[in-house]
Every structure is written in structure tokens, then in C-alpha cells.
Computed example of a mutant assay.
Amino acid sequence: MVQAKCGEGRVKDFADGYGTHNTLILGADTAAISEEDLLRAAALLREGETVAFPTETVYGLGGNALKPMAIRKIFKAKGRPADNPLIVHIADREALDGLVREVTPLAEALMAAFWPGPLTLVMKKQPEVPSEVTGGLDTVAVRMPAHPLARRLIRLSGVPVAAPSANLSGRPSPTRCEDVIRDLSGRVACILCGALSDIGLESTVVDVTGSEPVVLRPGGITLEMIRAAVGTGRHDEAVDRKLVEGEAARSPGMKYTHYAPEAEVILFRGDPEAVLAEICARAKQLSLEGKRVGVMTFDERAQAYSDCGEVISLGSCFQPEQVAQNLFRTLRTFDERAVDVVLSETIEDSGLGKAIMNRLIKAAGYRIVQVEKS
């Protein structure tokens, strides 16, 4: 990992097609970001450069949402397909006026309940919002992060900040600064380091252009919480399936394989004892084939897999908040241990578990084995 003293670190040059720069790394040793550091990073955002920064969900890679050149730099740094829409981050309610055509009563109610926080709202966009941000759609996704450093950075920059997760496209989203440095050092202008992300999953994305809220991407704000706040809501049917060729992604995280480690991931769902037996049998066979096997499970069953490979628990299956925070870090740990195949248990597909399973299914490329009791 590249280490750097706060305010001093610079790493290798990177030619991104729009100029060559070094990456300025702030807070890598101390995770202490000064006002001076924030001012430097904010100035880079105003100038159209890319800055990675912590949020309460995952680390984001930001650029001036109103500058198409800055958005293209984000896509270039991540290797991200340009038809994948981005989320615009704001620090104040007033910033919505320049981004969206109308804030409906439904949107107002959800903002009152969950902003600042891990909720992104999809609304009809203003003409000033570049198509590079929206993936060519007539809507824009906006959220106000709860992380104080993120909001301070955005406020100091004076611009709305488009920010997908700060990782190479397709890789597990980063919840630690060292993950960002490993993926993006030399590819971006600046990395602001902070503590581990609190939630560990990207924000919930909700379409509020109709009469009821439609969840396009599940996250820390669950459908149950949305219904409690406004009395209605549903998941978009595309949440649980792969988009077909030519179908537009209405939200980040809908279209392409996401969140995947370098290892192949296979999910196993069904009767717990049957799943245990199937994973152990698969692990034994893969080991005989010369593969290094990882098993991703939960505290309650980790000991049962002790002879089945590199075993990592996501935490208790009865504490989905713990599982969510550990998920992406665990997937990256398997890569650090040079695992070839990850065999994973699943969690109940409700509440926060819906968001966890959404990420797991995409990390596995929709490879799910249904195991029945024999």
C-alpha cells in the first residue's frame, strides 16, 4: 500500500487522456484531514479534477457534476462504461434547484425522513445537468451524504459533485482508504483518507418521478423504512434480475457485473445443512483440481467449515448491519489471500438483507446454486 503523511503524499504519474498529474494523498497515516486539506481538495473539484473521499456508505470518486470533462475523467479513472449513470452529491437543500426540474411532495417527504443520509432520489433533471452524468436519461440521481467530511468538502467546492464508488469498475466498492489507494493511486488527482465507512454498502436509490417510490437499488434505507415514512413503495422488478441487452440502466449498479473480486464467486441457497454439505463437497473437489478455495459464511456456522478452505465470517447472520459493513472488505480480503473460488452462503432476502443479497448476486455474476434437503 502507498503510504503518505497528511498533506504531503504524492505518487506515480498517470496520463488520463486529459493531462498528466500525480495523486495527492491526504491523511493516509493519521486519517486526520485539516481545513487546509479540504480547501486544496475543494479547489481541485472546482477546477475539474477528480477527488476520492469518504462517505458513510463507501468511498466516492468525485468530480464537478456540471463539467463534462470532469465526468469523463471519472469514467476514465474507473474504467467505467459511460452509459452507467452517476449520483450527484450535494451539501445543502438549495443545491437541488440547479439540478432538478421539480421536487415533488413525495421527494420532500423522503428528504425530510432520510436526508442527510444513504438515500439517493431520482428526479427529472434540469437541462444544465450534462448527459454524461445521467447516462443519457432525462433524470438525475441526487443525494446528500451524512458524512461531515464529505458535506464539508462539497460545500467548500461550491459545486455539485458527481461521485460513483472510488474503485476500479466491477471491483468491490471500497470501505477503507487503503482500498482506494490500491485501485486509484496515480489515476486521480487527490485521495482524502478517513475512517472505515459506517454502512459499507452504496446508498439506496429511489425513483420519485411517479406516484409511489420505486427502489432501483436497495441499500441501508430499506423498503420497510420507506413505507413507514410515506406509506407506500415497491422494489423495481429489475432489482432481482440481470438487465437484457439494450435495456437502459435507470440507476448505478443495475446493468453491469459489480462488486466482484478477482476470484469466481458462487452462492448457495437453501436448507442450511444441505448448503453446508454442498459447499464442503465443492470445496474438496475444487481443492483436488488445484484451486485455492475461500468460504464466506457467518459466525454461527464458521467453525463447521474449518476444513473447507480459507474461511471468513461476515459476522452474525442475525446482525445484517454487521454483515453489510464487512461484505466488500471480505471480498477484497479473499483476493489478498490469492483465492481462486469463493463459495458463499446467503442471507435472508428481506430488510437490509435485500441490499446484501443484491450485491452478492451481482458479485457472483448471478451464479446461484439452489440446494434442497436430501
Rank of each mutant, 00 (worst) to 15 (best):
M1S: 15
V2R: 14
A4S: 15
A4P: 02
K5D: 00
K5C: 04
C6K: 10
V11E: 00
F14R: 09
F14C: 15
F14M: 12
A15L: 12
T20M: 01
A28S: 07
D29F: 07
T30E: 13
S34K: 08
S34F: 04
A42I: 01
A43K: 12
V51K: 10
E56Q: 11
A65E: 02
K73E: 01
A77R: 07
R80K: 04
A82W: 02
A82I: 09
N84F: 01
P85H: 06
V88P: 11
H89I: 05
D92A: 02
R93Y: 11
A95D: 13
G98Q: 03
V100C: 14
A107C: 02
A109Y: 07
L110Q: 01
L110V: 05
M111R: 10
A113W: 14
L119C: 08
K125P: 04
P127T: 03
P130C: 06
E132F: 07
V133C: 08
T134D: 12
G136H: 09
G136F: 05
V140G: 01
A141K: 03
A146D: 13
A150Y: 01
L153T: 00
L192I: 13
A195W: 13
D198A: 12
D198K: 07
L201V: 12
E202N: 03
S203K: 11
V205H: 09
V206M: 11
V206I: 01
T209W: 05
E212G: 12
V214A: 08
P218W: 14
G219V: 12
G220M: 08
T222D: 02
E224T: 06
M225C: 02
I226P: 12
A228N: 00
R234Q: 13
V244I: 05
G253P: 02
A260F: 04
A260V: 02
P261W: 03
A263V: 06
I266N: 13
L267R: 10
L267D: 08
E273V: 12
A274Q: 09
C280P: 05
R282W: 07
R282I: 02
K284R: 11
L286Q: 08
S287C: 02
L288D: 02
G290Y: 09
R292P: 07
V295W: 05
M296A: 04
S306D: 10
D307L: 13
D307Q: 05
E310C: 06
G315F: 08
G315C: 08
F318H: 00
E321L: 15
A324P: 08
Q325W: 10
R329C: 01
R332I: 10
R337W: 15
V342D: 04
V342C: 04
L343K: 01
E345N: 10
S350Y: 04
S350I: 02
L352H: 07
L352A: 06
L352V: 05
G353W: 15
K354V: 10
I356D: 08
N358M: 07
N358C: 05
A363F: 00
V369G: 07
